[in-house]
């Protein structure tokens, strides 16, 4: 089964969730598409992201909010970004990307290196890269320097090159947004979420 990151944006996925909210949190996918005069395959990519990020479950052609999905649509723009960030970090691809960024000498990756990493985890690297960069940027996981064509870490982790700088305090967040209380899984469920991570990349 090929694994791909289909072309869709965080904004489109959020649009789909807002639509689902208007249907009281559960609706046939066909009906959602019909609501916007779209064909089903035009909303499937957005739906796949929502499913992978554990915001909805899809069963028998019907999409239903998870508890986290309900919290997501009720949240502010900032809180939604924090949830996206947490959920993306659970996927194998983004976890791999973040590790690569942290371990890279200058905490940045060229387009080429990025493509290589993406090709380890998905089938259609070239098309997927731009799309993946967009998700990670929106969720504030990393920056992208379009002049240099490099992915750049947002927060420099503890670095040997600048011994004067203090390591970030434990639990320091990549931004000032409070992510506390938004962790979707209770402590101790890490084994299960690891399984989900594996499932998360295998978007059919």
């Amino acid at each position: 089964m090929p694994t791909t990151y289909p072309k869709s944006s965080p904004t489109e996925m959020m649009g789909l969730l807002v639509l689902l909210k208007g249907h009281k949190g559960s609706e046939d996918v066909a009906r959602l598409a019909d609501d916007l005069d779209l064909e089903i395959d035009e909303i499937l990519p957005a739906l796949e992201y929502a499913e992978v990020l554990q915001l909805v479950t899809v069963s028998d052609g019907r999409a239903t909010f998870t508890d986290l999905g309900k919290r997501f649509v009720a949240a502010s723009i900032r809180e939604r970004k924090a949830i996206l960030r947490d959920q993306l970090k659970r996927t194998t691809l983004f976890r791999t990307l973040m590790r690569a960024l942290e371990s890279a000498p200058d905490h940045s990756l060229s387009d080429e290196q990025l493509s290589q990493i993406v090709s380890f985890t998905t089938a259609q690297a070239d098309e997927a890269v731009q799309n993946i960069v967009n998700w990670g940027r929106y969720a504030e996981l990393f920056r992208y320097d379009s002049d240099e064509r490099r992915l750049v870490a947002r927060r420099r982790p503890t670095s040997n090159r600048s011994p004067a700088s203090k390591p970030p305090p434990p639990g320091a967040s990549a931004s000032t947004l409070g992510t506390g209380g938004l962790t979707p899984h209770a402590p101790g469920s890490s084994g299960r979420s690891a399984e989900k991570e594996t499932a998360a990349v295998a978007i059919s």
């Binding site: 944006s9 489109e12 900032r78 970004k81 929106y138 969720a139 947002r154």
Partner: peptide, 21 residues
């Protein structure tokens, strides 16, 4: 930039952005 959800795109040029952004 923060309240509109644009954080992370400060240095981007419009050509890099989708219509929604």
């Amino acid at each position: 930039i923060e309240v509109t959800g644009l954080d992370g795109f400060q240095e981007a040029y419009p050509r890099e952005l989708s219509g929604g952004m």
